[in-house]
Design a protein around this nucleic acid. Structure first.
Lengths: 352, 352
DNA sequence: TGCTGGCACTCCTGCCTCGTGACTGCTAAG
DNA sequence: CTTAGCAGTCACGAGGCAGGAGTGCCAGCA
């Protein structure tokens, strides 16, 4: 049994450098890093024997692990964590990536679904990893407009427009619909609800407004339900994903069993959402490494998430999922840069 | 060089049975089928030597191939084709599958996107292969209603409702919008266009209607564009897919190179669409085997497609993609059964 | 003429062995 | 504290070998 990992004993400068270099090298090569590689490729000023001693201590401290006795070392979860928190140098976005992001959003549509889809694909391509994006939940949006449309004597449609331009529709049936009734009711609802958050608009409030409009009870009931359905404030947010094929390029996923469990996860929106839900509460980026993800199935993975905003509020998150051995600094820059562009785009999309 | 495959020389009854049995056995076991296996597992009434002679002739006829000298035989594309066209017995839908489909559509939503998404997942799960569904193109739908909504002095929204309940939105900006103008114009458009196919409604016709409404020229121009954008009749139809993880269960995709190229294809809606676009012109199901797919990347695959309908017209297709070694009869029944349920559901969804 | 048993031949597959190379940890000396 | 040297460990790949599955062909029989 290894000793329990001590809580971050101060690393001296040399140990820190060695740890950072092991991470860097392992991320680049996917091969366990040995003491000889370090002394030859990096200018350390000491011999490989010294590095061996240091590495042994880093292993004792829980930062490195050895896949087997006669192999080099690879970072542990704690090693990556220390690297990410303390050692990693922020990396600026490459010019061509910057440009690509800029171009993508310049010609982006104003339809939210399209934007989310395109953002996901963009992030998947640039990161060469799996990207997924949690779309804004209905309840983070603001009510703009409702229109009850008369389609025939017995069917109508409730259409709700929100701040992000999302149009939610819900059809309703009732014998004896009258166009004027619906128009009058639409106007009432609009006057009362405009500008308010979907979250705070409760069913009983709308019910009261509908009742005051003086409609047949039964019709009122149908309308309230249609309206509530169209708002659907509590529906789980959709999750779009892209780039699953990049997993195959990673040596850690040559094993088909691992690959399968991850592919299964990627196809389940609910699971993806659960993986990143808590990072929506955080202001800045979040990085989760291996076991920190809390799921046995993907202990070999890490996820970088960056929330994006609409108005003053976080409404969703961008995420990049890949092997723990991922270029954290680059992916962080990429996700952050994309999130910034998305923020700007959404702000311009607002239907004021 | 093998001789060119003769065009379907009549197979005698015994050859036909042997071919069918080889397909059946190979689909079940994924192992090349030898003459001994056939005589032992199936009651043929002749010895393995006779089967060997027959199989050699089937190979000469292009129906079977041998992976290597000392192996059994597997069906060629032509072998599968003959099996599918002439030998395969239709298989009824299993009861539990039937029930599952029924349940799924009973509680299906009335929103088209939801329905397509659920259908795709259903088909992926039941087929244990990759399923994808081409959503109805806009231009196969009928115009029901347009509503130009006034949101503020300078922004409005064009909302188009079609027969399938799809709501297309497009925002527009123009200084000095007047709610009454928009309402008046909406009414005019509705009167003229209701019930017509989106395909036949041209931009110049709408332009004429808008012009007659007596609006400022510039505003008229903006509205025509917004309306045309919302109709977007020429947009390529969306393609939803599900079940990629099932590929990993197939022995033919243990090779990561093959797997990668297929995964890449699955992520490209355009490519998926091109693979099945022509089968929308066909009345019934289509089965494409290996090279028939016309793409070098997926010669190891087959696709079963079944078109689905809305009103009198084919609007999209369900597809199942898997290894050539797929249970054609079962998947055909599955896709057909699902398409039937989808047809029924869409017919009920129509907003009359 | 068609079917069958027998037989030699081919070639994949799994298994074992063994050499090689890449590491390590340890020790003793600087 | 650092370093050179050295013995020890272990994964990995190549090569060889036996076993087995399946074929084609041939000669004999109904």
């Amino acid at each position: 049994m290894p000793d329990p990992v001590p809580l971050r004993p101060e690393l001296d400068k040399r140990k820190a450098f060695i740890l950072a270099t092991v991470v860097y090298e392992y991320v680049a090569t996917a091969e366990p890093v040995g003491s000889n590689t370090l002394t030859q490729k990096y200018n350390l000023g000491v011999s490989s024997a010294t590095i061996r001693n240091e590495m042994a201590e880093l292993e004792a401290g829980g930062y490195l692990v050895q896949p087997h006795t006669s192999a080099g070392r690879i970072p542990s979860d704690a090693g990556y964590r220390t690297y990410v928190d303390q050692l990693m140098r922020p990396e600026p976005l490459q010019n061509d990536e910057q440009r690509r992001i800029h171009d993508e959003f310049r010609e982006a549509s104003r339809e939210l679904d399209d934007v989310i889809e395109h953002t996901t694909r963009l992030l998947g391509q640039l990161s060469r990893n799996v990207a997924f994006v949690v779309a804004p939940a209905r309840n983070s949006q603001t009510f703009r407009h409702v229109q009850l449309i008369w389609l025939s004597e017995r069917t109508g449609l409730a259409i709700v427009v929100t701040s992000l331009g999302v149009v939610a529709q819900h059809p309703f049936d009732h014998p004896g619909l009258v166009a004027d009734d619906l128009t009058r009711l639409s106007n009432r609802l609009n006057m009362t609800l405009a500008g308010r958050s979907l979250r705070e608009i409760g069913a009983h409030e709308t019910a009261a407004i509908v009742r005051d409009a003086g409609l047949v009870d039964e019709l009122a009931h149908v309308l309230v339900r249609a309206f509530a359905d169209a708002m659907r404030a509590d529906a789980p947010p959709a999750v779009a994903s892209s780039g699953a094929q990049h997993l195959l390029d990673q040596p850690e996923f040559q094993d088909l069993r691992k690959l399968r469990s991850i592919l299964r996860i990627i196809e389940e929106q609910k699971v993806l959402y659960d993986l990143v839900a808590d990072s929506m509460a955080t202001e800045g980026p979040t990085i989760k490494i291996g076991h920190e993800l809390g799921s046995d199935e993907i202990t070999e993975c890490s996820i970088v998430t960056v929330p994006y905003r609409f108005g003053d509020e976080t409404v969703g998150v961008l995420a990049i999922l890949g092997p723990r051995r991922m270029p954290y600094a680059r992916l962080l820059a990429l996700a952050t840069g994309t999130a910034n562009s998305l923020n700007r785009h959404l702000a311009n999309t607002d239907i004021r």
